[in-house]
Amino acid sequence: MDFCDYIMYNEGAKGWKMSQNNNDFQNAARRQDAETFSFIDAVSEAYETYPELVKKVFFIDPATDNIPHPDPAVVQELIDFVTKTKPGRDVIQPIIAECKKNKSSYCHTNGPGGGFVFVYSGEDALRLTGGENHNGHSHKTELQFVFDHELAHAIVPEARSDNLFLAESVADAFAALRHLQRNKGDTGFIEDMMLARAAGTAFRKNGILNFSSPVLEKILEDAKTVNFEKFSHAETVSYVTATAQQYTPDGATLGKLYKSFAALKEQPQLKDLQNIVATTGDANALKWGKRILQALQTSRIPKPANLRHDKDQKQKQNQKSRGKYRPGLTCSGK
């Protein structure tokens, strides 16, 4: 098997060494914790569900440097490819390093219906759901969604589209349907993911790329009457593609939404979002701004990393006006 057929060159990467720990796919110990995502189990299910992927899609866990595959010989070929070849060093290793650094996941697509899927499975993996008063969903639930999202980029044609907004919406739609199919139509997690994607759009500089909320909203609406559990893979791909194509906002709409939320990209306070909701002339900013605001006020979704507490800022201003606040120092004044 020539893995160079599935990889592109990229100059300038630094070296990295792959660990061979726990690479025996067939004998690897499975995690027993029902709430914890098992990367090996997910890969096993993917290969069993889509056997044609065995020679086209390869999975790497940046958290453990694990490359599970049912054929031990292929595992060794993959390790040699990643550690000893130029494309492995220049492309794959930097992706692994970036995912490890950010506790995140990624899909590097190459060839028709093929590529490398990187899913960071650590307990400290980047999470999108769960606020202070809403414990969120299990590590397994969220990481399985991430796994299916990245897998979609490898196997669903429109999830590889040059239109990145469409591609991300298709991938989220595919992951949402796989969640519904696995969990007997449970929609709670998809609702929270819809809100989290909207919040990311508002507060993250590049969050607009993952604004799949309108697509997830349509899936939630259809889930009331459609039994997605009975869908075949072909039906799933057809549905998520058509839904994403119809409900992914166009460039002009996304541009207006981005501008409407521009004030939230640095270090905003919640009142900045409230002000946008109160004054915006953009229907999408009004609709999703209201829903984000409610989700944050009820702690249904995590507080964005760049969001400052209004109360804390007001207290600091009061302390500063009384001469009891010094930047960088602990203030004990009452």
Rank of each mutant, 00 (worst) to 15 (best):
M1L: 15
M1K: 12
M1Y: 13
F3Y: 12
F3I: 09
Y6M: 12
N10L: 10
N10T: 13
E11N: 09
E11Y: 14
K14F: 10
W16D: 10
W16L: 12
K17A: 11
Q20P: 09
Q26Y: 09
Q26V: 10
Q26D: 15
Q26W: 11
Q26F: 10
R30D: 12
T36A: 15
T36I: 13
S38F: 05
S38R: 05
A42H: 01
A46M: 08
Y47M: 06
E48Y: 10
T49L: 13
T49D: 12
L53D: 01
K56D: 10
V57K: 01
P62E: 01
P62M: 00
A63G: 05
A63M: 06
N66C: 14
P68F: 06
H69G: 02
P70G: 04
Q76P: 07
E77H: 12
L78Q: 00
I79N: 13
D80T: 11
K84L: 11
T85W: 03
P87A: 04
P87G: 04
R89I: 12
C99I: 06
K100D: 15
N102Q: 15
K103N: 13
K103V: 08
T109K: 11
P112C: 08
F116G: 05
F116Q: 03
F118Q: 03
Y120F: 14
L126Y: 14
L126C: 09
N133M: 11
N135V: 10
H137C: 08
T141P: 06
E142L: 02
L143S: 08
F145V: 12
V146A: 08
D148G: 07
D148Q: 13
I155P: 02
A159S: 08
S161R: 02
S169P: 07
V170E: 03
A171R: 02
A171F: 00
A171W: 01
A173P: 01
A175L: 05
A175N: 03
R178I: 08
Q181H: 03
N183F: 08
K184E: 15
G185T: 04
D186I: 05
G188Y: 09
G188T: 15
D192M: 06
M194Q: 15
G200M: 07
A202D: 03
F203Y: 15
N210V: 11
F211C: 00
F211T: 00
F211G: 01
S212I: 08
V215Y: 02
K218G: 05
L220H: 08
E221P: 06
A223R: 02
V226N: 05
V226S: 06
N227D: 15
F228H: 03
F228G: 04
S232K: 07
H233L: 14
T236I: 06
Y239P: 04
A242D: 14
T248L: 00
G251V: 01
F261G: 02
A262S: 13
L264R: 01
K265H: 08
E266V: 14
E266A: 15
K271I: 12
L273Q: 07
Q274V: 09
T279S: 15
D282N: 02
A285R: 00
G289R: 06
R291N: 10
A295I: 03
A295K: 02
L296E: 01
Q297H: 06
T298K: 13
P302Q: 01
K303Y: 09
K303P: 06
N306I: 05
R308K: 14
R308Y: 11
D310C: 04
D310F: 05
D312A: 13
K314I: 12
Q317G: 08
K320N: 11
K324Y: 11
Y325M: 05
G333L: 07
